[in-house]
Structure formats: C-alpha cells, structure tokens
Design a protein around this nucleic acid. Sequence first.
RNA 1: GCGCCCUUAGCUCAGUUGGAUAGAGCAUCGACCUUCUAAGUCGAAUGUCGGGGGUUCGAAUCCCUCAGGGCGCGCCA
Length: 615
Amino acid sequence: MTENIFTLLTQEVRGLLAALLPDLPAEALARVQVEPPRDPAHGDMATNAALVAAKPARMPPPKLAAALAERLLALPMVTEATPAGPGFVNLRLDENFLRGQVSTVLKAGTAYGDSRLGGGVRANVEYVSANPTGPMHVGHCRGAVVGDALANLMKKAGWAVTKEYYINDAGNQVQALGWATYWRYVRTVTMDADAWNAENAERRFGVALQYRGDYLVAVGEALAERFGDTLMPREVGASELPPEETMSAFGPALERGWLVKTSWIDTCRETAVAMMMVAIREDLAMLGVAQDVFRSERAMVEAGAVEGAVSLLERKGLIYEGVLEPPKGKTPDDWEPRPQTLFRATDFGDDVDRPLRKSDGSNTYFANDIAYHADKVGRGEQLLIDVWGADHGGYVPRMTAAVKAVSDGRVPLEIVLCQIVHVLKGGEPVRMSKRAGTYITLRDLIEEVGRDAVRFTMLTRKSDAQMEFDLDRVVEQSRDNPVFYVQYAHARCCSVLRQAEAMDPALTAGLGAVSLAALTDGAEMALIRRIAAWPRMVEAAATAREPHRIAFYLGDLAGDFHVLWNRGRDDSTLRFIREEDPVATRARLALVAATATVIRSGLGVMGVTPVNEMR
RNA sequence: GCGCCCUUAGCUCAGUUGGAUAGAGCAUCGACCUUCUAAGUCGAAUGUCGGGGGUUCGAAUCCCUCAGGGCGCGCCA
C-alpha cells in the first residue's frame, strides 16, 4: 500500500474545512475534491472546497477560499496556497515533498499505486465466455483483454477479484456443434466422403450444419478412433422403424429414414466441447489470460440450479403466467399472442417482463443466466461485472433487473460493453465471414503482431467505442505507435541503468535512499509529478471500470520521459549519467528507476510484458 | 415504430465523473539536429465540443428536443 498524495491532501483540506466550519454538513464535505488543475500554471493541485461549502456556510466562495488558503499554507508540504477564479484554492507543493515520491516508488516497487479503495469487496469479473463451438477469433479478443485488465486493475485498487469464464455448453449452439462434429465423424469413417458432403448430410440428418470449419476434423477423427464405425448412421425402410416408445432415442434424421441415436450426438457434442475448451484455454494462455473459475452452464443446469432460481423468484412473487404485447411498431411476421412464464423485470427497471420458458417447455437462455448469476451471488460475490459484446446491449436491463431480484438489491451487476473491432491490413478492412471460414483467429493475430501488441492496442480505446486494429500500425516502431512508445521508454530506462552499473556498480546500489535534491530541472519535476499521479490514476480508472486509461497514462508518462532523454542530446549536462557528478547521477538514476517501475506497474495491469531492450 | 450507445481540431482520439482560457498525436507550416543515449527536437496555426433549449456560482460532461452514425427489439446464445 502506498500513499496517494491526492487523497492525503484531500483529507487535510477536509480536516481544515471542518475545523473552519464546524456546522458544515457531511454531505458537502464529501464533495470536497483535490485534483490536479487542467492548467499546470495553476499549481500542482486545486480544491473546490470553498465552492461546495459556500452555499451551506452562507459565505461568498472567494472569502471562504481566502480563509482556507491561509490555513493550507501552514501545512508543511504546501508552499503556496492562493484563492483563484470563482473560489478555487490553488496549491503548490514543496518540491522536496514531491521528490520524495521517487523514493516511495523505489521502496514499493510495482506495488506502487496499490490501493485499498475496493475495501476487499469480493468482485467477480466474468469475461470471454465464448461458446465452445470453435477457436477464439478477434471478436472475442477485445473482451478478453478488457476483462482481464479490468480484473487486474480492480485487484490493484483493493477489490478481492475472481476472474471467471462461463462455458455456454448448453443450448442450441452446442447442439449444432454436436451435429457438425457427427458429420465430421461420418466423413472420417465412410468409404465415400463425397456422398456425405455437407448438403447431403443436412438433408439426411434434417439439421443445418452451422459449423463447417476444418477445426472439427480432428474431433471427428478422435471419435472415429475411439468408436470405430459403431456410431455410423444406418438407412432404414418404413418396415424397420423402431417401435413408438423408443422413437425418442432418435433425432430428426429418423423422419428422413436414417437411424442416428441422439446419444451419439450427445457424445459428439461432449467430445467437441471438451476439445474446444482445451483449444480455447490454449488461446487464452497465448493471450496471457488465465481465469480462476470456469463454470459449465450444462453442469449448472443438470444440478437443478435453474429450477432453484425460478422457485426463488416465485417465492418472491416475481413470476407469473402472462401474454406479452408485441414489440411496438415492428411486429415479427410469426407473432402470435401466447401465455408464457414471465419474470417481473419491470419491477426492477426493465421495459417489459421477460420470458423464462420457450414454447417447447425448455428454459430460455435468460432463465439459465439468472440461475448462473444467482449462483455467483450464492458463492458470496459482492459485486458482479460482466464483459459483453455490444450486440448484447439490449440484454443489459433484464439481467441487471434479475440480479437485483435474486440478491434483494444487495449485489450490483455492472456490464462493460465492448464494441466491434475492425481489423485493417494495408489500410484495407479485412472482411470476415464465419461461414466461409475466413475470419481471423486469435492465434493468427498473435502470431502476426505478438501478444503484447494485441493486448496494449486493445486497451487504447474506450471499450464502448469502435476500434480499428491496424495490423501494420501496431508493429510500427515510431512515435505514433503507443505500444512501441511505452515499451521503448522502459527499454531506455533499463539501458541507462545497465550502463551506469557497468561503469560503477555503486552508482545503482541503494537508489531508494539516495539524495534527490539535484532533481531541479523542469522536465525532471514534470516527470516526478506524473509519477506521483499514478496511485490516483489507478483509483480513478478502477472506479470508472476503464482500464484503457492506464494505456493513456503510460503514453503520457513515456512522453515525459522521452522529453527528458532528448534534452540530454542537446545539453550534455542534462544527461542521466555524468561522470563528474556522481551525486546528480545517483539522483537521476533513482528517477529513471522509478519511471521504469511505474511503467512496469502499469503494464502489469494491462498484462503486457515490459521489455528491457529494443531489438 | 420503440429503446440503448456514439457525434470534440483536416485525421485518429483523450478529457481526471460538474470546474478555471477544451487537450495530445498525426498531418500542415517555420526553424533546428546529421549524433548519439538509433528509431529526432523546438515553435506556430487549428474548434459553433453535431444544432437548439434548460438545470446552477460554473456544462464537452446532467435533463429535454432535433439531426446524423451504430446496436438491439418474445420461443438465438
């Protein structure tokens, strides 16, 4: 845990204000903030204290600001306190106090910026949760990176975080996967693969083959190896049809005259899901993502969790049988009023009540999702965060309503939506089609540009803004590639420290306790101020659930450092290492080491590996 | 038709949760550097924060409204 100079000053200001105005309501006191002013000419920090206290205190803001400024000036770390503008108090901090942050960083290491803000609250961050119907592609990638970085960020800011992956292994999608896998199995075993082309198979099975990608070939082969030809379909005449009472053991193919046991499809599905999950975990590992918990939807359903959740809602009087109005304006062609089992989502802010059962009696995805979120609540999670693709945006109100209902409003659910990523190559958008198998897999992407570039770039936009991922740009070694720019700053830091140590190991020893008085240059102080802002940045980004802010901060930090470096090119007295002045050298090396530490701390949140040299 | 998200410099985007004269990079223009600590430096110019209205000490930020772009809209997950 390291000090945050902004919260430190906030406490001081609140304390002084409360002493000045004993009757000030706590609500006003809570609105008192200390933040860096936009214009650095206004000083290191500014507080709105006089503005927020003026009305309840019945005093004009400037007068209050003047009184507050006088008291703030008495603080040891404050060298200037001036009322300004409509009632701000601008503060300038003692430079020794600021320099002290360098030592603080070096003592704390990458734990610098850790915070207790989250108060140890148990937060569950669920992300990726791709259907296990194929390898991960770029569409999943953004959510994976955003979720992982957000989890890291909140951990750093003091939440007790669980990273979770929900395996959607129940429902129609994986059923379709089972059939596609079965088709691959048949093509592996049969002597006449042409006769079992996709069109013939669809006709004979009576199902659509949604997943035709090559990645299922290996699953078909694995099944062929294990079961030989025992799962092969058999053509039957009308006279050979199985008795009525066993018909249910066969799927839709039977009507087309083909015997295919549903248990075979189950086997195919299970095998495929298992193998896909292995592949997905490999993909995640390549991306540097490792969730703590993998939860199976099917296992949850089979354990009766959905019935449990529904009856819980029933006991709360939130379930009823009813008929929904058709959507206003646009009525679907096949719309017909139908009584359904509905959840009273409107009681919790949703527009309409939401169905829990399909017409065939099975549960909707929503019902399963209620059970799943109730399960998280039941595990003692106190804050739920789901990272979703933006195409699920319409689903947000009903899910938050459901979590309110099952947790009696105790557990908030927050949804982070991730917009589409458009991949560009040579300035041209790369078109992707799942059906045609032309989509870019996560593996392709990582092999092309590297894991760190993928992760960093995915965090260079607010998650709910669309992003263009330019394959050429992210590997470019120039100022306008933030990945490179930040990595290069870290490598330069390491390079300086290596050189110094090679000259004399005593130069780099014990930097945490070195005298920093020689750090007087404006560019040096600017870098120190940036470093001192890191703990505040962590808290702000975590509170806003916006990990991309870390990327922007690191870009700024790198910029400050590069400025300093480049000044050494024009003026050799500003170089970090000056043989004739070991005291200044040691102070500057401490600053360099602190810069590298903060970069590492930030990259750690982003899950990006810092490099020690550029090649 | 309804709901949600987005619209900030020529381009790509930030904007510290309502703070002061709205910022950065690229591109443009003008100087400098030609070497070391390779993968430049400094300066200039650039705005109806999509339009309009409101809330208040104060709005790019909150509310209403209009325009343009994206997403979604009962038995898909």
